[in-house]
């Protein structure tokens, strides 16, 4: 009885299988013969009715059949799939792909994110402060005496007599020194404002990153090392640099850092005004008056601070000759970054 069933099924399969030429027909075959409720499975059902001593022999027969059918099935499946891909080869593959619209980050943001990532890798945290600032944080606590010409270095927008749009991100230094415990190692990015006529070289607002490290035994040598490490990471390990004494009311000694012009490699060009050097940042040791104003004893702790302009550096980095283009947000410009 079962013998016959096996033979019949075998011949049925032998008849159908070779005639299959599509994946759909093959799937239909699979369901009919190989699925859990398929015809091969029904043989195993029938096996249950066979006397115990005959079971192994029949079982083996059915297994052999099943294995052979499965093997043929897999072979056919593979060959059908390959012929499927051959069939599709007549498609014009030069048709445009289905592109996703490309987004961009603003070049100033990209510069800033690059700077942040370097400082974060050097153990700096990132903090922010207000753009509407009071005279105390923006000037007084930073050792700008009232009526000192140093205030001329930063033309100021006033909201009230003693409330300004911050002229630099340095007031955030005062805020963190007053609110966070030492040691303190942070950078402070943000937008700043200067009451200056808008031109190709200057805008009434721009972006800065200030940095601050206050701890025991922080030295000018630490400052220089930090700045050189940053500059080599940011501008490239082969740059040349120089430090010049400079003046900021809130640091003493103060410095400015120049690097060789990356456009002319130091030979002199329009960008570096023929000097071969580009000024990239200002820095110095936190002035003892500032430390005192923020509640720290300059005999016990010291610190360094630095600041750089993100917009100006972006100009140089991308060879842009007019700062105003950053804020026109022309898509033909933005899509280049």
């Amino acid at each position: 009885m079962l013998d016959q069933k096996i033979t019949e099924l075998q011949s049925e399969i032998d008849r159908i299988l070779p005639a299959i030429s599509t994946t759909d027909a093959l799937e239909k075959f699979r369901i009919e013969f190989l699925s859990r409720s398929g015809k091969l499975a029904s043989l195993y059902e029938a096996l249950k009715t066979v006397p115990g001593d005959q079971k192994p022999a029949y079982g083996q027969k059915i297994n052999t059949l099943k294995k052979s059918v499965e093997a043929q099935f897999e072979l056919l499946k593979e060959s059908l799939q390959s012929s499927f891909s051959e069939q599709k080869n007549d498609i014009d593959i030069t048709l445009p792909g289905r592109e996703r619209p490309r987004g961009t980050r603003h070049p100033i943001t990209q510069t800033l994110e690059h700077m942040k990532s370097i400082f974060v890798s050097m153990g700096f945290g990132i903090v922010y402060g207000p753009e509407i600032e009071d005279d105390y944080h923006n000037f007084e606590a930073l050792n700008f005496a009232p009526n000192h010409p140093a205030r001329d270095m930063q033309d100021t927008f006033f909201v009230k007599d003693d409330i300004v749009l911050r002229t630099h991100t340095t007031p955030v230094q005062v805020r963190v020194m007053k609110s966070r415990p030492l040691p303190l190692r942070v950078i402070m990015p943000g937008r700043v404002y200067r009451n200056e006529a808008v031109s190709a070289r200057s805008n009434y607002f721009f972006h800065q990153v200030d940095g601050l490290y206050v701890d025991k035994n922080v030295t000018f040598a630490d400052l220089k090392g930090t700045l050189v490490t940053f500059a080599k990471n940011f501008y490239g390990s082969d740059i040349k640099y120089r430090f010049r004494p400079s003046y900021f009311p809130f640091t003493e000694p103060s410095l400015e850092m120049d690097i060789t012009c990356f456009l002319c490699k130091g030979n002199g060009c329009r960008i570096c005004k023929q000097s071969g050097w580009l000024e990239v940042l200002g820095a110095g040791m936190v002035h003892p008056n500032v430390l005192r104003n923020c509640g720290h004893d300059p005999e016990k702790v010291s610190g360094y601070a630095f600041g750089m302009g993100v917009d100006r550096i972006s100009l140089l980095r991308y060879g842009i000759d007019d700062i105003r283009i950053f804020f026109e947000n022309d898509l033909r410009f933005l899509n280049q970054f």
Partner: peptide
């Protein structure tokens, strides 16, 4: 996701 970042005037 295909957006262009802009930076605009504050004033």
């Amino acid at each position: 996701n295909g957006l262009n970042e802009v930076l605009t005037n504050s004033l």
